[in-house]
Every structure is written in structure tokens, then in C-alpha cells.
């Protein structure tokens, strides 16, 4: 008896794959952050899972994974309002997912670099108003806060300072996370790089 190869692209089996991959994306985000912290790296690296799941399963599954990660880490950390930063992660998932779907997440230059820049700008643009609403502009990120304070001292208003200060930190953090996600994906065998089936 021969085994039919499993098609993850449609039907109820796709929903099973989604139910497995979303928690996996959440866990990879979490592990990325833990590993970065244990290696004493100055960045969070907690969007790698969102990008990987978006590239493998599609933009909306990646986005869902990102949002769920923010909700869970907010619940576990107790800072419920931090779950609003899930909006930033939605963008990460959609940008990487759609670029992967168009075949534009295979080469470092220019594809992944463009994805990193887009993700960084999106995260800065959405992160600033959320930080304003939740924390009044200053959150627990020391690097960003110092830049915000410096810009305010130079006469800028709080909102634009919060936005501009987040661009370099997000380029570094989310941008590098995109590159790392691409590197990890490039090391997987072809059949594991895309479980989207014909929808890719």
C-alpha cells in the first residue's frame, strides 16, 4: 500500500496544520527572545517565529501567530496592555508572508533587506501611538527612551520623538529578526520551507 503524500494546502487538513504552526510560531518567538537574553544580545529577537510561520504558511497565519504571541506574553508578564503591540506583529506577518508568497523572500538583497525595512517602519509607525496610549510614550525599553528624551530636549514633541526613536531600534531588532528568519529558512530542506501547498 502506498501512502498518499499529505497536502497541507487546503481543506480540513490545512486547519490542522494551522493549529500546529501558530503555537509553533508563538514558541519560536518566545525562544528567540529567551536565547537572545541568555546570550546577552542587545535585541529582543522575538519576531522570528512570526516571520518564519508567515513565510511557511502564509501571511494571515503568520500574523495570527504574532498577535497570539503578544497576547500570551502580555498575559504571562501581567502587562495586559502590551498585547496591543500585537498590531505591530500583524504587520510583520503580513509583510513577510506576502513577500514570500510573491517569491520575494528568497534572496538577502534586495528582498529580505526591503522586507526588514518595511517591517521596521511599520513597527515604528504602529508602535509609537500604542506606546503613547499605553505608557504615555515612554515604555520599558531603555535605549528607545533615552533617544526619545534626547529628541524632546531638542524641542520635538513626544509623539514624533516616540516614532523617530523607534525606527533605529526596530531596524535593529525587527529587521535583524527578518534576516535571521530568512537565514533559518534557507537552512531548511525545500519541502519544509513552504507548507502552503498551491496557495504559495
Amino acid at each position: 500500500m502506498t501512502m498518499k503524500s499529505v497536502d497541507s494546502s487546503k481543506g480540513r487538513l490545512r486547519s490542522t496544520y494551522i493549529a500546529i504552526m501558530i503555537p509553533l510560531g508563538v514558541a519560536i518567538n518566545y525562544i528567540g527572545g529567551q536565547l537572545a537574553s541568555s546570550l546577552s544580545l542587545p535585541i529582543y529577537m522575538d519576531s522570528i517565529g512570526t516571520a518564519i510561520v508567515a513565510a511557511i504558511m502564509g501571511p494571515w497565519v503568520g500574523a495570527a501567530s504574532g498577535v497570539l504571541f503578544n497576547i500570551i506574553s502580555a498575559l504571562v508578564g501581567g502587562n495586559i496592555m502590551a498585547s496591543l503591540f500585537g498590531i505591530c506583529n500583524i504587520g510583520t506577518g503580513l509583510i513577510v508572508g506576502y513577500m514570500a508568497r510573491m517569491g520575494k523572500f528568497k534572496k538577502l538583497w534586495p528582498d529580505v533587506v526591503i522586507a526588514s525595512i518595511l517591517v521596521a517602519v511599520w513597527n515604528a509607525a504602529t508602535g509609537a501611538p500604542i506606546a503613547m496610549a499605553v505608557y504615555g510614550g515612554i515604555d520599558g525599553n531603555a535605549g528607545t527612551n533615552i533617544m526619545i528624551a534626547a529628541m524632546q530636549n531638542m524641542g520635538r514633541d513626544l509623539f514624533s520623538s516616540a516614532f523617530l526613536a523607534r525606527i533605529p531600534t526596530n531596524l535593529l531588532d525587527k529587521g535583524i529578526a527578518c534576516v535571521v528568519a530568512w537565514l533559518i529558512l534557507s537552512k531548511l530542506p525545500e519541502n519544509m520551507q513552504n507548507l502552503n501547498g498551491k496557495k504559495a
Binding site: A19, P23, V26, A27, Y30, I72
Partner: peptide, 12 residues
């Protein structure tokens, strides 16, 4: 999906 995330985080 929600509950499994906690489990997978621990295992990973």
C-alpha cells in the same frame, strides 16, 4: 491553538 501555545513554549 491558544492552550497548545503554552505547552509548545515549554517544550521548545
Amino acid at each position: 491553538t491558544f492552550i497548545d501555545s503554552f505547552q509548545v513554549m515549554k517544550l521548545l
